[in-house]
């Protein structure tokens, strides 16, 4: 089972040169839970995820993992605790699924050590968990979009981290593959206690799957908490600037947001 890790951000200012996208953000990730970060396009969700996994240096404030600033943790050590699946990783030409997933073992390998049986086991387990074992010897360029995304997930799983950050893991997937990926994350969280933090585009899927919802607006956390507390017409108005109605999802009982456009009849 996993150890619980505390990941938090304090007084974070993030940006690229003169462009500040996140300013004065405080955030605590509940350990052992599934957190979804939502917000409008270009609100800094991905930037926040990059900063939390030490890829981006904050202009101010810091990200702490178990009380230590992540920028001070040696990269390989951090990569054994915290994994990140970026939005658009690149598959090298001709690489097989097994080899790509094997790249996830890097943080566990010493400089001159050979590939071990333990590495093979971790890769096999990751392929089984993502149902991609039968693709192991295929090259990544032969795969469909849904298969490819599962293979990238398998790479992140082979890394065997207690914390897993994912940047829009379901984008470009059809609804069946979206559900497949999200179900997998729930299993990972439920069975292994992995703390999952994901940026999601789809508010309703976020509310359906996450234990903890974080809505970002104007460079800071607008609201955070259980989906029922966070996903309200007021939040949708503040974060996305549209009117909406929120009802109870008949399947899960979680809140379900129905957007109201200019051309739809208003209720009552």
């Amino acid at each position: 089972m996993t150890a619980a890790h505390n990941l938090m951000a304090a007084g974070l200012r993030l940006g690229y040169r003169d462009l500040v996208v996140i300013d004065g953000l405080d955030l605590t990730i509940p350990p052992g839970r599934l957190t979804a970060i939502v917000g409008a396009n270009a609100c800094g969700k991905s930037t926040l995820l990059r900063a939390m996994s030490r890829l981006l240096k904050p202009q101010a404030g810091q990200v702490l993992l178990d009380g230590r600033p992540v920028r001070r943790i040696p990269p390989k050590e951090l990569a054994r605790t915290l994994g990140l699946l970026p939005q658009s990783p690149i598959a090298p030409d001709g690489i097989t699924v097994a080899d790509l997933v094997g790249r996830g073992r890097n943080p566990h390998r010493r400089a001159l050590s050979r590939w071990s049986r333990r590495d093979d086991e971790a890769v096999a387990a990751a392929l089984e968990a993502t149902r991609t074992l039968d693709l192991a010897d295929r090259t990544v360029d032969q795969l469909s979009g849904g298969q490819r995304q599962r293979v990238w997930m398998a790479m992140a799983l082979a890394q065997e981290t207690d914390l897993l950050l994912l940047d829009e893991p379901t984008t470009f997937l059809d609804v069946a593959h979206q559900i497949e990926i999200l179900d997998l994350l729930v299993e990972l969280n439920r069975d292994r206690g992995t703390t999952v933090v994901m940026v999601l585009h789809d508010l309703n899927l976020a509310a359906r799957y996450a234990d903890h919802l974080v809505a970002i607006a104007d460079g800071r956390v607008h609201s955070a908490g259980s989906p029922a507390d966070v996903l309200t017409p007021a939040t949708v108005r503040a974060v996305f600037g549209i009117d909406s109605q929120v009802i109870a999802d008949p399947i899960s009982g979680r809140p379900l947001m129905l957007p109201i456009g200019r051309h739809h009849p208003r209720p009552d």
């Binding site: 890829l55 690149i90 790249r103």
Partner: peptide, 11 residues
């Protein structure tokens, strides 16, 4: 070759 972000994330 996986891209800078993925490589950094792998340590």
């Amino acid at each position: 070759r996986l891209g800078d972000d993925a490589a950094s994330a792998l340590g």
